[in-house]
C-alpha cells in the first residue's frame, strides 16, 4: 500500500484554510454589504433631510426600542401561527408525498391540483377562512400551511424519485425489500431536496402568518402593521418589517441547523470534494509535465 500513500487525501492543512475562507465568504461578506447599505441610507437622510416615507435606520431603531414590548407581544402570536402552520404543512406534505410516491398513477391526478392550489391568490381567500373559522389562530395557521406545503411536497416527491437507479439496483441484487430500499437509499437521497423545500417553506411561513392576520385578527404583527399604517408611522411599520425578517431568518436558520445535524455527510463533502478536485488537478499537472 506504500506506493499508494501520495494518492490519499491530505487532510492536515486544508480544513483550517477552508474554514477561514468560508468564514470570510459566508459571514463577513454578506454582513459588511448590508452594513454599507445601511450607512448609505443613513447618510442620505443626513445630507438631503429626512424623508417621512423612508425614515433612516436610526429612526427605525428608535421606533423599535420605543415599541419593543408591543412588538414582541404581537410577534409571539405571529411566530406561533407560523410554526404551527409550518408543522401542519409538513405533516400534510409527508402524507401526500408518500401517497404520490406509492401510487404512481395518483401523481398524474394530484399534481395538477397541487399546482392549481398555488395559483389561487391567498389574500383573496383569507377572509373566507375568517368567516369559516373566526378571528382566532386557526385561519392564520391554515393560510401558513397553504403557503408552505407546496414547496415541501414537490421537493419530497421529486427528491424520492431522484435516487440513483444504480444504487437502488445494488440493493436489489442483494434481494432488498422495497422498504429497505426506501430507508437505505431513496429517503436519504431525497433529503437534500427535501430540505431545500423545507427551508423555502420556513422562510415563507412568517409572511404567511402576517397575511393571515392582515385580513382580520386580534393579535399579531399583521394587526400591528395595519394599526401603525393608519397613523402613518412608517418608522414603526419598518420596525415591524425588521422583526418579520428576523423571525423568518430565525426559522430558516433553525431548519439549516437541523439539516446540519441530520446530514453531517452532506457538509463533510465540501472539504472532501475540494481535496478530490485538487488531487485530480495535481495529477493532471504531473501527467502534463511527464508527457
Amino acid at each position: 500500500m506504500n506506493q499508494d500513500k501520495e494518492k490519499e487525501p491530505q487532510t492536515i492543512n486544508k480544513p483550517l484554510r477552508n474554514w477561514r475562507f468560508r468564514f470570510i465568504k459566508n459571514i463577513i461578506m454578506p454582513f459588511s454589504f448590508i452594513i454599507v447599505i445601511l450607512f448609505a441610507w443613513e447618510a442620505y437622510g443626513v445630507v438631503f433631510g429626512e424623508n417621512r416615507l423612508l425614515p433612516p435606520p436610526s429612526r427605525i431603531i428608535n421606533a423599535f426600542v420605543e415599541t419593543r414590548e408591543l412588538l414582541f407581544f404581537h410577534a409571539k402570536y405571529t411566530l406561533i401561527e407560523a410554526a404551527m402552520g409550518f408543522l401542519l404543512a409538513f405533516l400534510v406534505s409527508v402524507f401526500l408525498a408518500l401517497l404520490i410516491d406509492h401510487f404512481k398513477l395518483l401523481k398524474q391526478a394530484i399534481y395538477p391540483l397541487l399546482v392549481i392550489s398555488q395559483t389561487v391568490p391567498i389574500v383573496a381567500i383569507a377572509p373566507l377562512f375568517i368567516v369559516l373559522f373566526g378571528f382566532g389562530i386557526l385561519p392564520k395557521v391554515i393560510v401558513v400551511a397553504l403557503m408552505c406545503f407546496f414547496p415541501i411536497v414537490i421537493s419530497m416527491v421529486e427528491g424520492l424519485q431522484a435516487a440513483d437507479k444504480d444504487m437502488v439496483d445494488l440493493l436489489r441484487v442483494m434481494d432488498a425489500s422495497n422498504w429497505q430500499i426506501f430507508r437505505l437509499v431513496r429517503f436519504p437521497a431525497a433529503l437534500v431536496s427535501i430540505f431545500s423545500g423545507i427551508k423555502i417553506a420556513a422562510a415563507y411561513s412568517v409572511m404567511g402568518a402576517v397575511i393571515g392576520e392582515w385580513v382580520g385578527a386580534r393579535y399579531g404583527l399583521g394587526l400591528f402593521m395595519i394599526l401603525v399604517q393608519k397613523s402613518f408611522r412608517t418608522d414603526q411599520m419598518l420596525a415591524a418589517i425588521a422583526v418579520i425578517t428576523a423571525a423568518s431568518l430565525l426559522l430558516f436558520g433553525a431548519m439549516e441547523l437541523l439539516q446540519r445535524l441530520l446530514m453531517p455527510w452532506y457538509y463533510s463533502k465540501g472539504d472532501g470534494e475540494d481535496i478530490f478536485v485538487d488531487q485530480k488537478r495535481e495529477r493532471k499537472v504531473v501527467n502534463e509535465e511527464e508527457g
Binding site: 444504480d166 436489489r172 441484487v173 442483494m174 434481494d175 433529503l191 455527510w265 452532506y266
Partner: peptide, 18 residues
C-alpha cells in the same frame, strides 16, 4: 436475486453512510 455479490462499474458507496 441475492445469490451472488456484485460490484458495479461505479463504486456506488452511499454518501450518507460512513
Amino acid at each position: 436475486r441475492g445469490v451472488v455479490s456484485y460490484m458495479p462499474q461505479k463504486d456506488l458507496l452511499f454518501p450518507w453512510r460512513t
